[in-house]
C-alpha cells in the first residue's frame, strides 16, 4: 500500500503539469469553471483524498511512542557540543 501511495503522489505531481489544455478554456464545468481551473480544483480534492489514504495506510505509527507513559522524561540537548 505504501508503494501505491508513493506512486499516486508522484502521479499527482505529474498531473499538476497539465500542459495538454494550456491554451484552452473549454469545456466550462457547469458553465462557470474553465477546464484549467476545474482540473486544478480537482487536484486539490484529489490531494486531500490521497493524504487521507496516506494517513490511513502509511501512518508512521512508531512516532507515537512519545505517548508512552513509561518513557523517560525528555533530555534537553540544548547544550550539545
Amino acid at each position: 500500500m505504501r508503494t501505491l501511495i508513493i506512486i499516486a503522489i508522484a502521479l499527482l505531481v505529474v498531473l499538476h503539469q497539465d500542459f495538454w489544455w494550456w491554451d484552452r478554456a473549454q469545456p466550462l464545468l457547469w458553465g462557470v469553471l474553465p477546464i484549467g481551473l476545474a482540473w486544478h480544483a480537482g487536484l486539490s480534492l484529489a490531494a486531500a483524498a490521497l493524504w487521507l489514504a496516506a494517513v490511513k495506510w502509511c501512518w508512521p505509527a512508531h512516532l507515537e511512542v512519545e505517548d508512552d507513559p513509561a518513557a523517560p522524561p525528555p533530555t534537553p540537548r540544548e547544550d550539545a557540543p
Binding site: 503522489i9 505531481v13 484549467g36 486544478h40 487536484l43 486539490s44 490531494a47 486531500a48 493524504w51 494517513v55
Partner: peptide, 21 residues
Amino acid sequence: GIGVYGMLASSSGIVHSACFF
C-alpha cells in the same frame, strides 16, 4: 488569469501536506 491557482494553490495543497506528513 486562472494559471495563478495551479501555480500557487493546488501546488501548495500537494507540497505543504507532504511537508507536514
